[in-house]
Design a protein around this nucleic acid. Structure first.
Lengths: 326, 326
DNA sequence: TGCCCGTTATGAAAAATTTTCAGGACGACA
DNA sequence: TGTCGTCCTGAAAATTTTTCATAACGGGCA
């Protein structure tokens, strides 16, 4: 038997009308009573008709919370995801967060729609939002991010291995003063890529010669690298934690008259379209965007995986793409 | 008095239950009867409760149909639009169309949601879709496109003037053999930019020295320009109808050992972020993205403008951004 | 052909839900 | 202290959805 408003009313000790009003936005009802009714409804499993239809509409929707759309990697993800969902006749809702803006600012908006799933590529998912998702039975997936502490599913490229691959390549090519331009400090992508890179250097008895942060942005990376290059012993190779920063490094190096890769080798991470442009010819790690998106969607679709599950992480390996910049 | 199912039933000569069923997806009802009921409901102005809530949900939604997300100009638009809508607590639904794919392929999906408005930046809005929008009282706005024949509102940069500005600049700088790389043939952006460019040359008693199509894409433009540059009298300046094609031209020129702008001047259109990167330093026309998005949204919001209106076009002027490539 | 059976379509009636209406409680204010 | 206005409430009315019994149709089969 489907739960009805009558049952809820009886259990909560209020009139049927009150139940109806509780579920009608803007209706005149005591907030406390409303809360009581919600609690009872939750317990019995009652959903008001209006909610039912709204739910049906939102069920075919997936929300993408994207961070920095100025990094061409994310439009790539967005594009892939959009096509993927179109095939299965689903809708894609997009939120673009300013880099400096916390995801909590849009939590309410995102949850108000009650999509069947949320894919987050933004810098970080706060525990606030993770909790809210669990409470609302909305599945959240981190894409290109991992936060182990938060019981949340994630899909990511194997950033550690990617960092290692780049590190090994630079060692094999015989570069002596290997530098690093890091991304956003508290992100898993940054941490893992750096860790892999550092590890492989350490195994060869080497260390990172110089290091700076580029915040994953072109402009900041460019300013940062100018300092590195004007040092007395400038690096002869630089690994950048993503591609746009690598492009910035190449631009800055060329401005100083350095030849790539003779005077300075540069490697990136992501393989955005510009990486293959002939002005750059950037050696980088290609992230398997297509497969990452597929996995993310399948994590949401898989009925065996519950919103309340402990987070599992699917890690896909990237591909080293060698071009002329190293 | 609000129209009720009873009235519809009476007017259509069916039972109240039939009316309810007509508005319930998947309910067992004769399609002809359903159509009849829809017609009567339309006339009386009856909306079923389920539709009412679904409508309320969708009312705060705007759909963006984007074409080529590989052109960084569109992520720029997307980003701006997303922020804009977040401020007014609205949702943004995104469809990404493959370049070769007709918009009709997603028409049904787009309209099924019944958003309050649709913004189309894709290559072209077919008359099919335009009609469907009018029928469904959904406001459509073309962004960065104009189609005068279709009674549809549009917001666009003044492409004609932009083309003129570039043309004048190249003339003033004294370039002798001025070439052109065009975009997608049947788009207004292409047509207008070329027209402005051609006009200003004609006024100076000059013609376009060589011309090719780059389809608004990096790869195609690059291939096209290789031919132009290996001619006996290669151009000494090229206007590209958008920035990525201009970047492709610069890359191709540099590969041939040409110096920019000494051996070849290049100008683009859009002012995407990469245009200002030091490898390119591209002279271009900056499109007022912020204002264009604002106008597009206001066209949708303005209650005085009906979905059935004759199309009005709001044209905003771009800014000539002079950099080192000319 | 005639019978059986399953599917689809239907209105009446029942059930469920929303909305209206007529207070009651409470505080502000004269 | 009385009056007014606002907010909240349940009963009842209005509205809509769902159930139920039945009719109509078509295909398979003796």
């Amino acid at each position: 038997m489907k739960p009805t408003a009558k049952q809820v009313a009886h259990a909560a000790g209020v009139s049927i009308a009150a139940v109806s009003r509780a579920f009608t936005p803007g209706a005149s009802i005591n907030p406390e009573k409303k809360k009581k009714i919600f609690a009872v409804a939750e317990e019995i499993g009652y959903i008001s008709p209006a909610r039912r239809t709204a739910k049906a509409v939102a069920a075919s929707t997936i929300t993408l919370v994207a961070g920095d759309l100025h990094n061409p990697f994310y439009p790539l993800v967005l594009d892939t995801l959009a096509r993927h969902l179109q095939e299965s006749e689903r809708q894609l809702l997009v939120y673009a967060l300013p880099t400096d803006c916390n995801i909590d600012a849009v939590t309410d908006q995102v949850l108000a729609v009650r999509p069947s799933g949320i894919i987050v590529t933004s810098a970080s998912l706060t525990s606030n939002m993770a909790r809210a998702c669990r409470q609302n039975q909305i599945k959240a997936v981190l894409l290109n991010r991992i936060q182990r502490d938060m019981r949340i599913n994630a899909v990511s490229c194997d950033n550690y291995q990617g960092g290692r691959d780049i590190g090994r390549l630079l060692l094999e090519r015989g570069y002596q003063r290997i530098g690093l331009i890091g991304g956003v400090a508290n992100t898993s992508t940054h941490a893992e890529r750096v860790r892999g890179f550092r590890d492989v250097l350490a195994e060869a008895g080497r260390t990172i010669h110089v290091q700076a942060s580029g915040n994953y942005q072109y402009e900041i990376a460019k300013q940062a690298v100018v300092h590195l290059l004007s040092a007395i012993h400038p690096p002869d190779a630089i690994f950048c934690c993503n591609d746009i920063m690598a492009l910035a490094v190449i631009d800055a190096a060329k401005e100083r008259g350095l030849r790539i890769p003779k005077d300075l080798a540069v490697a990136g991470f992501d393989d955005i379209p510009m990486a293959s442009w002939s002005s750059y010819q950037l050696t980088t790690i290609r992230q398997p965007v297509e497969r990452m998106v597929q996995e993310a969607v399948s994590l949401i679709d898989d009925p065996n995986i519950k919103a309340s599950d402990y987070g599992s992480t699917r890690m896909l390996s990237g591909t080293l793409v060698m071009r002329a910049s190293t």
